[in-house]
């Protein structure tokens, strides 16, 4: 498969270009915080509940809140029907996503409670864990959860020996490498870094730099979306 033509990718993007991204803050009425995100072909809803009482009770911690993160793909989110319920992949993604967001949350403010994050993938097109983390981070802010910063995430990878930002499905499936990165852009702290495929050390460093640039652009969009929620009402 040929991925690069005249310096452009299969969907006409440059190697360092993100897909179009749209955040909608507070998309769910009943959740304490929520965010709907469209990231290229990905359509994702994130909801946050809490801090609230922990059930089952034995999970509760006396001195801090616990964070629970559920990443789930809808059965209709991919072309071939996905069997509903958690599988090996989604359990792993839930774990790494939770660990990507957990370091910025001030858990000590809410002892004996839980903050539950639900990320539902309605339509998948590569980079769902990253887009899910972006949505979850905005939803947490919307819920009024105290955090040191917003976590932003995007994927980088390699196709046709070129390091590219924000892979689409074809690039992810048939490319040479895929590497999701999540970070707090202000401090530069990387909270998630995974890699599938092969990169040389030079390529890895190049990819990580590109990932950081991508995260910085996403952080701006997340911030703008949150500010717009209250500014938007004025324009009506």
């Amino acid at each position: 498969m040929e991925f690069m033509k005249n310096g452009k990718r299969i969907d006409n993007r440059l190697p360092n270009e993100l897909r179009p991204i749209k955040f909608e803050v507070g998309a769910l009425e009943r959740a304490d915080g929520s965010c709907y995100v469209e990231h290229g072909g990905n359509k994702i809803m994130a909801a946050v509940y809490g801090p609230r009482a922990v059930h089952p009770r034995h999970l509760q911690q006396a001195n801090r809140a616990i964070i629970r993160y559920r990443y789930n793909m809808a059965s209709f989110s991919v072309e071939e029907r996905r069997r509903p319920g958690p599988d090996r992949r989604s359990i792993e993604i839930s774990k790494v996503s939770r660990e990507a967001i957990d370091p910025v949350i001030i858990k000590e403010f809410y002892p004996r409670s839980t903050i539950d994050i639900f990320v539902e993938i309605l339509q998948a097109d590569a980079g769902t864990r990253s887009a899910g983390i972006n949505a979850a981070s905005v939803a947490l802010a919307d819920a009024g959860v105290p955090m040191r910063g917003l976590i932003s995430s995007c994927a980088v990878g390699k196709v046709d020996d070129t390091v590219v930002l924000d892979l689409v499905k074809e690039e992810d499936n048939y490319g040479q490498a895929d590497m999701p990165v999540a970070m707090d852009v202000r401090t530069g702290e990387v909270t998630l870094l995974q890699m599938d495929g092969h990169l040389t050390l030079d390529e890895f460093e190049q990819a990580l730099e590109l990932g950081k640039i991508g995260c910085a652009s996403i952080a701006k969009m997340q911030r703008e979306a949150l500010i717009q929620k209250y500014r938007g009402e004025e324009d009506e």
Partner: peptide, 25 residues
């Protein structure tokens, strides 16, 4: 000084952030 929450910054002699959402403590 950085903001800990999503809210309205109110800067006088001190700077505080008034929450827009969240749970009552």
């Amino acid at each position: 000084v950085y903001s800990l929450i999503y809210g309205l910054a109110d800067e006088r002699e001190k700077v505080r952030v008034i929450p827009l959402s969240g749970k009552y403590l």
